[in-house]
Design a binder for these strands. Structure first.
Length: 420
RNA sequence: GUGGCUGUAGUUCAGGGGCAGAACGCCUGACUGUGGCUCAGGAGGUCGAGGGUUCAAAUCCCUUCAGCCACCCCA
């Protein structure tokens, strides 16, 4: 083996998987177009500060996982760990607020996080994300959630579970956090180590703990739904009603807390238990203050992202295959080296007529060339020998029926006219 | 970042101190210019990498890298 190997947590997408990735990405763009989304492409790296502001200084993503570096001009840069910050930055910088609201954008790109790799978790990974900016309407929340779920359904991904919650806004969440903190502090002794650390730093995250003892205590914890303000409550109620209108099944999970600081109000997550411990296939929510925080207009927004490799994993687990290897229409074989240039020329002629053509290279006997044609699953073979060159009629062999006839190039092309 | 399992041919894997193996795949041949099936032959390995113990290491020990699993985190 060469000393050069993949960097940990990165992947080579070999043709089959590369085509699957491409297929999912392309499908998403056209599917989302039906909902009014347009593609946006932003840079792979940004100023580190951009992400620190949005994702939150205290989060693991910023503290431990971001790929940060200085460029030769001394700029502090970071490979993007998520997509929303860049889209919002681009929205403000290019005055996209001038467009009719909500402005709907989709992105399809790699993200980078320095995490311990696992199935469905890579250091460079793909996300398909969508952002709808400029409307607080709960109907938009419902449309976005339905889009997210419906896209996965369109790909025939099964056994999905949608969980939703409202995280409150800046007016009511602090009050809830206070109450929660008080409750947690009183029971601190009952929690595991990580949980008791979180009580001070980020009490909402205690809900993420999977330890049974912690969950037991948490079942008695104050629920955010009892503390969110009237406006948020009303908003969330409407989201639920609209989701029902759309026949979207959901589970309300009062413990669902998204990992980024910028989320407000509606939060949701789609999970697929067959994926193992990395079971979140999509996640998102509202971020009503982020645009203003970045110095843009005061516009609420909602968005989400898919983990594309996780969609691919679901495909593989369900044995969904999307592609068969492309079969050559014609395999051009030559008898002797002398006819190789004719074979090359004829291949080009056939391709000009939009046929899929492969030919034999290297010193191979006719026999081994046909063997190759068979392996490539070619439908037909065109044999180019001395005789054929002289007469202008080539041996055209149907590789399935093994029948062969002598045809001119034009006649060969006509053979494929019906199916093209 | 923590703990566990795994790493042998292109692939899937056997072998667990004494000659590096199987299946599939790949290449060649079975007389003239014809594939699939069959038969015969062949190529292909620093046993993930580095060090140590031993007369002798794929095998035991240490380190390291990578993959997977759980934690963590999240998509």
């Amino acid at each position: 083996m060469s000393k050069y190997t993949r960097v940990r947590g990165t992947q080579d997408f070999l043709p089959e998987r590369a085509e699957l990735l491409h297929f999912i990405n392309e499908s998403a763009v056209s599917f989302f177009e039906n909902y009014g989304y347009r593609l946006i492409i932003t840079p792979t790296f940004e100023n580190s500060e951009l992400f620190k502001r949005s994702v939150g200084e205290s989060t693991d993503i910023i503290q431990k996982e971001m790929y940060e570096f200085k460029d030769k001009g001394g700029r502090d840069l970071a490979l993007r760990p998520e997509g929303t910050a860049s889209v919002v930055r681009a929205y403000i910088e290019n005055n996209l607020g001038e467009l009719p609201k909500p402005v709907k954008l989709i992105y399809v790109s790699q993200m980078f996080r320095y995490e311990r790799p696992q199935a469905g978790r890579y250091r460079e990974f793909w996300q398909i994300g969508a952002e709808a900016i400029g409307s607080p309407d709960p109907a938009l929340d419902a449309e976005v959630i339905e889009l997210c779920l419906n896209f996965l359904n369109s790909l025939a991904v099964k056994d999905l579970k949608l969980i939703i919650n409202s995280m409150g806004c800046r007016n009511c969440r602090p009050g809830y956090i206070k109450v929660l903190k008080k409750f947690l502090s009183e029971k601190e002794a009952l929690f595991c180590k990580t949980c008791s650390q979180r009580i001070e730093q980020n009490p909402l995250r205690v809900f993420d703990c999977k330890q049974k003892e912690c969950q037991k205590v948490l079942s008695e914890a104050p629920k955010i739904s009892d503390y969110i303000c009237e406006e948020d409550k009303e908003h969330f109620e409407k989201v639920k009603i609209y989701l029902k209108t759309l026949n979207v099944e959901f589970v309300i999970d009062p413990h669902l807390v998204r990992g980024f600081d910028y989320y407000t109000r509606t939060a949701f997550e789609i999970t697929l238990s067959s994926l193992g411990s990395q079971d979140a296939i999509a996640g998102g929510g509202r971020y009503d203050y982020l645009i203003k925080d970045y110095g843009g207009p005061d516009e609420p927004a909602i968005g989400f992202a898919f983990g594309t490799e996780r969609i691919m994993l679901a495909f593989e687990n369900q044995n969904i295959t999307v592609f068969t290897e492309p079969e050559p229409d014609v395999f051009v074989a030559w008898v002797e080296e002398a006819q190789k240039s004719d074979a090359l020329r004829i291949s080009a002629m056939l391709r000009e007529k939009h046929l899929r053509v492969s030919m034999a290279f290297d010193s191979r006997k006719l026999k081994s060339q046909l063997k190759l044609a068979d392996k490539l699953n070619a439908n037909t073979a065109l044999i180019v020998g001395e005789e054929e060159i002289k007469s202008g009629k080539y041996t055209f062999k149907d590789l399935e029926s093994a029948k062969q006839e002598k045809l001119t190039i034009e006649e060969v092309v006509n053979k494929f006219k019906d199916n093209k």
